[in-house]
Design a protein around this nucleic acid. Structure first.
Lengths: 201, 201
DNA sequence: GACCGTAACACTAACCGTTAGGTCATTGAA
DNA sequence: TTCAATGACCTAACGGTTAGTGTTACGGTC
């Protein structure tokens, strides 16, 4: 999957720099708290210039959510890549279970605790999920099975990504996913009934 | 509703300053665009110090969304203040129609165009709506009619506020509200079925 | 009517994330 | 070898935001 453009000492060096920045940043964030660490601290500790940090990462927040492109991909894949004839919503639910389980694992727990402790990060996560929802909505809209309107797809996609946030905060995340997905399923079925893609104007 | 603490020349002056800042800011934003106007510009034009601006408004974005506390109140009221015995979801849908109509009115249109043009404002709006959703979720959880779990209430509340954002962007906002609320209704009913507030652990 | 505490406002100076401008050195290719 | 591309650097700044420190005007009290 990761492209290997040429032989590439340059690429290796660049990747090493990027990795060093990401590792240093995450370590400092976990040690001292996200808000207590400045970009200048990260740059100094990683022994690079501030501008170099921003040439690898678009913003301070992306240093934390570097790996989170998975989320977007996996949700869309759960739709487009499921077994032929498999029902849509259960496939999404299963993937959501996996995603929630993954982010609650012991390894990832400190990172999420840090995220929850910082309003800036929570806010960023929210708008990031919204982008993810749009990707999922596009995948839903391309469903051959039972076409819904674009609005219904976007609504359902937001509902699904909201499930992630809510389950993470629930006492019993697994039960929360199931509970919300009963609602998701009902909503998806209700969207089907007699709603043409574009009603007569 | 607005408290009238004492006699108050102080209060009047304070309110006047606040109003002057808000008016000036909105005017400048509409004239030159949100991102092209700095806080220092607003302060200078309103003839106050920068710190005074921030003593009245928590951030630059709140200068734009000053009036939007209505949204939160009205949604919660639509739940708690509806006629006795009136069904929940239709009450919410009606209120949502009113809110969408209101923000698409000619008077409000330029402001919303400005919001749509600025990523910073769009992002801020998103997290603001999330706060509103929590208020609505609390109102839903307090419903005597048919109690749902806290997670179901939060999920539905997010679904409802999402309807606002999606309807605003849809080709036919009125139809979009109706379309999404068919899904909301189904989701709410699905949340009822046999889901105790706290299942056996 | 004088007095004092408070709250609104101002000014300065900074912090922090982020970006622009321009330079240098390594590297892959010709 | 030479050359262009590019990664990294440095300096300096911009814009939102806050801390620190006054200064004034008001409001309630004696």
């Amino acid at each position: 999957m990761p492209e290997q453009p040429q032989s590439g000492r340059r690429e290796r060096k660049k990747a090493a720099t990027r990795q060093k920045i990401a590792d240093t940043a995450l370590r400092l964030f976990l040690e001292r708290g996200y808000d207590a660490v400045g970009i200048r601290d990260v740059a100094a500790e990683a022994d690079v210039a501030v501008t170099t940090v921003f040439s690898h990462f678009a913003s301070k927040e992306t240093l934390v959510f570097e790996r989170d492109a998975d989320f977007e991909r996996r949700l869309a894949r759960a739709v487009t890549g499921r077994a032929p004839g498999a029902p849509l919503v259960p496939a999404l639910r299963q993937e959501m279970h996996a995603l929630v389980r993954h982010c609650l694992a012991d390894e990832a727990a400190p990172v999420w605790r840090m995220i929850d402790a910082s309003p800036a990060l929570r806010e960023y996560e929210g708008s990031m999920r919204l982008r993810h929802a749009e990707t999922l909505a596009a995948a839903l809209a391309a469903e051959p099975g039972a076409p819904r309107g674009a609005t219904a797809c976007r609504a359902l996609a937001r509902f699904v990504v909201d499930a992630f946030a809510l389950a993470r905060e629930a006492d019993d995340p697994r039960a929360a996913v199931d509970e919300i997905f009963r609602m998701v399923e009902a909503a998806w079925e209700a969207a089907e009934a007699g709603v043409p893609v574009r009603p007569a104007t």
